[in-house]
Design a binder for these strands. Structure first.
Length: 494
RNA sequence: GCCAAGGUGGCAGAGUCCGGCCUAACGCAGCGGCCUGCAGAGCCGCCCAUCGCCGGUUCAAAUCCGGCCCUUGGCUCCA
């Protein structure tokens, strides 16, 4: 069974075959560090994280690069709020992004390159384009000449004529309306940041004075938006890479322009597979900073925790859109709880002495094997994380049925295999925290105290003081401890 | 207008590439039963879908073809 992915370039789901059969070069278009990251960004991160984990599981050595756009008008617009200069504001948000990523249990990318640190590479790429006749200078700015690149439009399936019909900037120094800036002369114009400014930000004039500029063969200026990704992808990976991932809102113009400028410069394919993460929506429209309908990653982690969030973000495949609502996040919460209970139940059953009874439950063993096959098939089918999660939910059912039906005499090997599957797939691939129960001493102490309270409660129950027993249970619940009475006495979880 | 992706039960969402095991998965919500002092969890069972509309191809279509309606995203701020 081999991995198949949906490639925007061809519009088809095709077998995944990296250039080097042992490794994968993957670039993810990261964000512009001008706002706190929201759940929509987190959806992209988590899916890319799972893609990388799965590629590694398949045996590939994955080189994952994810950029930060730290030079941008929108960042300048924040000067005075989150920093005293463009560079300062960018640093502030880079730190925030890294922190948010960590809180979501993401594996780190190999490199997080920043635009501000790659200006020499950007300049030399622009020079290459000018020299080869694909770009031209005008008043200190440099533009890419779309008519010089025959395949322009192949990613977004448009033609230069289509695009020309849409554009209408009259004052332009560009030769063609679809031409785009590789290098922009001068600093930042206060008019350009006006629409992004918050009332409490510094005055536009003052903010623009802090904008970074660099010397170039065309005079002082700033890099254009699209060229950075080409330069950084080539610098940290190669001129041709295997996978380029990004949000679907980037297909045009950003990715289209990346393809054009990169391929025009090198004469080679820029990326073989273009994967686009569909957007997170809330009440019928996409979640975005500019629409202001977002939930920040930090707030969401605080409120729901990383596991619920990951379960939610993975509850539809990356290639399908997702809906955020109280209901959908609530469902994710229930799913994660169910998975976790199933896992804990399997672990507890394995730990019980009766697990050594010689019991073999073929139904359980077959179910576990089926789950493994289903999970693998789901992931290989264009990283279908929803189906993969469903397989794990089936595993939970199998464990519950077995434990319920074999009171005390368990199939140790079957359960062990189930536990391993939860850890390997749920933990290792989906990044959920199975088996990572904290051993910290304060947690252990809290556990001891809970048991003490439960002992008291058992006494009250034995004496028939149910009212008091229920009070204790309610109070524990208020503290975040869930109590369950079972045949073998009470159990609890935090 | 142009490009792209979608329209499946109360919600959410697989399945559509490669037509038949789809009398449509998993989960949430709801109902009944077992268990329980009660609750929760779990288990068993039930409820809710002629798969946007109309035609066509076929022995057979949610799945293929054509037309139409609607929604969402992009069309130089955007994951």
């Amino acid at each position: 069974m081999t991995l198949r992915v949906t490639n925007t370039l061809t519009g088809e789901t095709e077998p995944f075959e990296p250039r080097d059969p042992d490794s994968v070069l993957l670039y993810y278009c990261g964000l512009t560090t001008s706002d706190p990251p929201h759940l929509g960004h987190a959806r992209g991160w988590v899916h890319v994280d799972v893609m990388c984990r799965w590629l590694e599981w398949l045996g590939y050595d994955v080189r994952h690069v994810e950029n930060f756009t730290d030079v941008n008008e929108k960042i300048v617009a924040r000067v005075g709020e989150d920093g005293d200069s463009e560079a300062d504001v960018a640093r502030h948000y880079v730190r925030q992004v890294i922190e948010d990523m960590r809180s979501l249990n993401l594996d780190r990318a190999e490199v997080y390159p920043r635009v501000s640190e790659h200006v020499p590479e950007i300049i030399s790429l622009v020079e290459r384009l000018v020299e080869s006749g694909h770009a031209y200078e005008a008043n200190g700015s440099v533009y890419f000449d779309v008519t010089s690149f025959e395949d322009y439009g192949k990613l977004s399936n448009q033609t230069v004529e289509d695009i020309e019909a849409q554009g209408e900037d009259a004052e332009s120094e560009k030769r063609h309306p679809a031409d785009f800036a590789l290098w922009k002369a001068g600093g930042v114009d206060p008019d350009d940041i006006e629409e992004h400014r918050h009332p409490e930000a510094a005055p536009a004039e003052a903010a623009c004075e802090t904008a970074q500029t660099w010397d170039s063969p065309w005079g002082e200026g700033r890099p254009g938006w699209h060229i950075e990704c080409s330069a950084m992808s080539m610098t940290h990976l190669d001129e041709t890479i295997d996978v380029h991932v990004g949000g679907q809102d980037l297909v045009f113009p950003h990715h289209e322009n990346e393809v054009a400028q990169s391929e025009a410069a090198t004469g080679q394919r820029f990326a073989d597979y273009w994967l686009h993460v569909r957007l997170l929506e809330t009440s019928g429209e996409k979640m975005s900073s500019s629409l202001g309908n977002f939930f920040t990653v930090a707030d969401a982690v605080e409120e729901f925790g990383a596991d619920v969030l990951r379960t939610f973000l993975l509850s539809t495949a990356y290639s399908s859109r997702a809906t955020y609502s109280e209901e959908t996040i609530g469902e994710a919460e229930e799913r994660w709880d169910r998975l976790q209970r199933g896992y804990e139940r399997a672990v507890d059953a394995c730990d019980s002495v009766d697990a050594y009874a010689k019991v073999t439950d073929e139904t359980l063993r077959e179910a576990v094997d089926d789950v493994r096959v289903e999970f693998e098939a789901a992931m290989n089918d264009d990283f279908n994380t929803r189906e993969a999660t469903t397989a794990l939910l089936d595993l939970t059912s199998a464990v519950n049925t077995h434990v319920d039906g074999h009171d005390d005499a368990y199939d140790y090997r079957g359960l062990r295999r189930a536990v391993e599957t939860f850890e390997e797939f749920g933990g290792g691939i989906l990044g959920l925290s199975f088996g990572e129960v904290s051993e910290e001493s304060d947690v252990a102490l809290a556990g001891d105290i809970v048991e003490l309270v439960l002992d008291v409660r058992e006494q009250e129950r034995a004496d028939g003081n149910y009212e008091r027993a229920d009070e204790l249970r309610d109070e524990l619940e208020a503290l975040g401890v869930e109590v369950q009475d079972t045949d073998d006495g009470p159990t609890y979880r935090f």
